[in-house]
Simulated assay, not measured.
Amino acid sequence: MNPDCLQALAFDFGTSRIGVAVGQTLTATATAIAPVSARDGIPDWNQIDQIVQEWSPDALVVGIPLNMDGSISDMARRARKFANRLHERYKLPSFLMDERLSTREAKSIHRAAGGGTNYKKESVDGIAAQLILESWFSSEQRIPSHSRLEDLYDIGQS
């Protein structure tokens, strides 16, 4: 693994769909790819297996949807659990990235590109994953997925 040119996959965790993006550190850019289906937050692991095999990432990044006040949401806990499962399954370094407002920004980008507002039909999850990964590339912070959220964000139990 060349630390100057890491290939990474990012995930925007959701209960019915998980956004995915691929990128590399050399240019610090990412590209959205097709989302992964999920049922009540349980991903289609066969789809993820295929993505990991195709892209051969050096690292995995999962967005953590904290509440705007920095408190830990139920979805943040579920996303962290998903990140841990990715780490266990693929034996790759897995990281967390604060993703507050990434979906809002993804919707704005989608609309600016001429997309509609039916986000169930026109997924913006990949754009959100792209934003998460590009934020991770530009961040100095590398938060391992197995870290306690309460310790990382210096907040109390919610």
Results as ranks from 00 to 15, higher is better:
65 P>A: 12
70 G>K: 13
146 H>N: 11
49 D>W: 10
46 N>Y: 09
58 D>Q: 15
111 R>P: 01
76 A>P: 03
145 S>D: 08
134 E>S: 09
85 R>N: 10
93 P>C: 03
127 I>Y: 10
131 L>Q: 10
54 E>H: 13
87 H>G: 00
117 T>V: 11
53 Q>N: 08
131 L>V: 10
110 H>A: 08
83 A>S: 04
138 S>Q: 14
121 K>P: 04
128 A>W: 03
77 R>W: 01
94 S>N: 06
120 K>S: 06
114 G>Q: 07
148 R>Y: 08
70 G>I: 13
104 R>G: 05
115 G>I: 10
53 Q>C: 05
140 E>I: 12
89 R>S: 02
65 P>E: 10
42 I>Q: 09
77 R>H: 04
93 P>N: 02
94 S>P: 00
91 K>W: 00
84 N>L: 13
72 I>Q: 06
128 A>H: 05
55 W>S: 08
49 D>I: 09
77 R>K: 07
116 G>Y: 09
43 P>A: 15
68 M>F: 12
147 S>P: 02
69 D>K: 14
42 I>G: 02
42 I>E: 07
60 L>N: 03
69 D>R: 13
89 R>M: 01
93 P>Q: 00
127 I>G: 05
143 I>T: 14
92 L>N: 04
97 M>P: 05
145 S>R: 10
134 E>L: 08
84 N>C: 15
59 A>E: 12
98 D>I: 13
41 G>M: 05
84 N>W: 07
129 A>W: 05
96 L>W: 11
111 R>Y: 06
134 E>P: 03
127 I>N: 06
71 S>L: 11
94 S>Y: 06
119 Y>M: 05
148 R>W: 06
59 A>W: 07
125 D>I: 08
135 S>F: 01
60 L>E: 03
142 R>A: 14
43 P>L: 11
147 S>W: 14
123 S>N: 13
74 D>W: 06
118 N>Y: 09
132 I>W: 03
100 R>P: 04
96 L>I: 11
118 N>V: 08
144 P>A: 12
56 S>A: 12
50 Q>D: 14
68 M>A: 13
103 T>L: 10
48 I>C: 04
70 G>W: 13
61 V>G: 03
142 R>I: 08
102 S>I: 15
100 R>I: 08
83 A>N: 02
111 R>K: 15
111 R>N: 03
41 G>A: 05
100 R>S: 09
75 M>E: 07
135 S>C: 03
135 S>I: 01
54 E>M: 08
115 G>V: 11
62 V>G: 01
140 E>L: 12
74 D>E: 09
121 K>E: 09
116 G>R: 12
148 R>V: 06
50 Q>V: 09
130 Q>K: 15
117 T>C: 03
117 T>A: 09
59 A>M: 14
132 I>M: 03
45 W>G: 01
45 W>P: 00
69 D>V: 12
85 R>K: 15
130 Q>I: 01
67 N>G: 00
84 N>G: 14
80 R>P: 03
58 D>K: 12
119 Y>H: 12
138 S>N: 15
118 N>Q: 15
95 F>P: 02
138 S>V: 07
110 H>T: 07
110 H>M: 10
100 R>W: 11
65 P>F: 12
